[in-house]
Structure formats: C-alpha cells, structure tokens
Simulated assay, not measured.
Amino acid sequence: MINTSYIYLDNASTTRVDDKVIKEMIPFMSEFYGNSSSSHALGIETNKNIIIARQNVAKLFNAEPKEIIFTSGATEAINTIFKGLVASNRTKRSQIITVTTEHSAVLDTCKYLEEIGVDVIYMPVLESGLIDLCELRKVISEKTLLVSVMLVNNETGVIQPVKEVTEIAREFGALMMTDATQAVGKISIDVQDIDVDYLVFSGHKFHGPKGIGGYYHNSKAFNFQPLIHGGGQEKGRRSGTLNVPGIIGLGKSCEICLNEIEKNKSSIKKLRDLLENELLVIEGAFINGDKENRVYNILNISFPDIEADILIKMLNNICVSNGSACHSELIEPSHVLRAMGLSNKDAFSSIRFSLSKYNTEDEILYTIKKVKEIIYQLKTSNYA
C-alpha cells in the first residue's frame, strides 16, 4: 500500500530511523541513563554498551574500535580534522587539496582556512563528476598537507576513486581524508583497503539518529589538536559528555548495515532503475553524473525547460530535492552541477531522487505517474 501522507524520496538528506535502532536506544533514555564517564555501577554498565557500539561502528569499516571518535555528526568531524591538522602542523606543508563538488561542510571550512593563510586548491571535475587523477598529479606536491575527496557525492551519487587518490597522496607524503557520509550503509567500506587517514560519517544518513556521527582516525596517522577541549572524553580528541542514546543507536545502525547491505543494494537498485528508465522517457531528460561509478540509491536527473522548484512544489506529498538540503533555501544553482559543466538553466531544472530500504514499488510507480503528468501539464500550459 502507498503511504498517502508522504512518499519520501529524499534519503540523501536524512533517513527514517530504523525501528530496531529506536528500540535499542530507548533504555538509555530511561533505565540506563548514567553518564558513561562515571565510576559508579550505572556509569560502568552504560560504558560497557558504549564499548559494544564502538565495536559495531569499527566493524563496519574494518577498523579498530580505538580508531573511532564520536562527534555530533559529519560537519563537526570535518571541522575537527581540517582545523586540527592546520593548528597542529609544524612542518612546511601549508596546502590543502579538495574538490569543487565537495559538500559545503568541506568547502566552507576550506574558505575559512584560506582566510587565515592556508593555501587551498579546489580540483575541478569532469562532466561525469569524477576527478581527473592526472590533474591531481599536476597540483599535488611536497607542500600538500591534506587531500580531501568525498567517497560518494551527495547530489549525484558519483563514487570517486578514493583508493587511487590515496595512493597519489602517499607518494607525496600527504595525509588523506574522505567524507563518506553518503557512502556508509550503501557500499562496503574497508579503511584498510582504501588506506585513508581519516574517514567521516553521520548516523542520520543510514537510518540512525540525528546528532551523532564521527570519524575514523588511522592509528598510524598524525594526531592533531582537538577542536573541543574540556573533560577529555574520547581520549581527549572530543571533550563533552557522550551522547549515550545516540551512540547506542549509531552502533545498532552499523550492525544492521553490515547484515543488510547486500539485500538492500539489490532491492533499492531495482527501484532506482525503474524510476530512472521511466523518467528518461520524458523528452530531453538526462542523467547527471557518471552512470557506472555511482551509488544505487541516488538519481539526479534534469528535465530541460522545467523549473525544479515548481515541479517539487507540485509533487506535493512526494518528497524530493533539487540539491543538498544544507542549501535548500538558497536561490542559486547547485555548485556540484555547475562544476560538472551544466548551465544555470539545466542546473535549475535538475531534481535528486534518493531512495531507501523503506521505499516500495507502488511508491515509485505513483511517483513516475505524477512526474510525467506534471511535466506534461507544465509544457502544455502558459508556463512553457
């Protein structure tokens, strides 16, 4: 049956919390409410569960539990890594390399660092949204402190060759960070294989609670100054009373992802492909981003001569996006699509559909029907 209240196809923005995650969290807001840093019995019992949650997160990435640091989410983790590395750097390395299609959490942090004297290089991308590794070799040098390339783009779903980027960074002695916020729970991530120094994630992107996330810190990598000082929690890397219910929920989300990832990939891809194939029938419609190197739950599609904002409003209870939710109130074209070479007009005509395990075939068929009806209506009205 179709959920007549909402058809939610904006899962790259945030996701519904899994019922099993909620069930796991509830006792830690009632029965086990102790501070995990306390030495009394309730604190010790709470901390035991924090340890299990950290193990579950680490297992999802093939990391060691001690390499997982909890934060309020990916944005805090990104700020922590960038600013911490710059503040702690005592070498001649004064350069950061990132990509023009990164999330604003990376780009805005880099703009701040530029203001305090850091040299930042913003790598362009090809029309596919992929970076050019040859161009990276041209700009990287012994001055490079950090290379930051997101694993999966939040608007197009394009998967960047992070392992190959890391190999290049290693040749020049640079550190490597990847924003894996959109990748976790969708594709398998092995930090030993991709060999990054830092990897960022956020729970609410994979059916966990909001307000919790963190980063993987390779135990062999540079240990920088923390962004937040205080009680010395997280081994001094992130002070502040731990968000116990959030951490428990995050750990459970990671455990579920590990068990469901292959099953979800098959079912969600089937729905995404159905949606994509039917919408491409619309005259002029085209996909944004590399069709081979992308995650299976995101579809970014342009409908020329149709304003995305108008289409989104007319879709009413079908929740979709015209780009990153962080910039949803800005009346400007997607910086990701513009970096890929789209005109302002085509960027303004683009919509992102992002699916999850909770979507159904009935919902997708209904969405296809409504999109086609609305676009036909707009093209045959005075609007066109």
Rank of each mutant, 00 (worst) to 15 (best):
F286C: 02
A384H: 15
V86R: 04
G173T: 03
N322C: 12
K111I: 12
R90M: 10
G213N: 07
I68H: 04
Y358T: 12
K369A: 13
I268A: 05
P304W: 09
E76N: 11
T178V: 12
A339V: 10
S381G: 09
D290I: 06
I374Q: 07
L258K: 14
L60A: 08
E155S: 00
S5E: 10
T80G: 01
D309L: 14
I96H: 02
V99N: 07
Q377I: 15
D19A: 12
M25L: 02
L199F: 00
D108W: 15
A87N: 15
T15F: 12
G232Y: 09
V184I: 13
D273F: 13
G323R: 05
N300S: 13
R237F: 10
S343Q: 05
V281S: 15
E45R: 11
I131T: 08
K48E: 12
A384M: 07
R90T: 07
F303K: 04
N293D: 08
E373D: 14
V120P: 14
E361C: 04
R294G: 02
K163R: 10
I374E: 05
I261W: 03
A77F: 10
K143T: 01
G157S: 05
D132M: 03
A53Q: 05
M29I: 08
L250T: 06
Q182G: 06
N56K: 13
I312E: 06
G129A: 07
N293A: 04
T80M: 08
E292D: 14
K270N: 10
D119Y: 15
S141Y: 01
Y122W: 05
V120G: 11
V184C: 03
S88R: 05
I7C: 03
A221D: 02
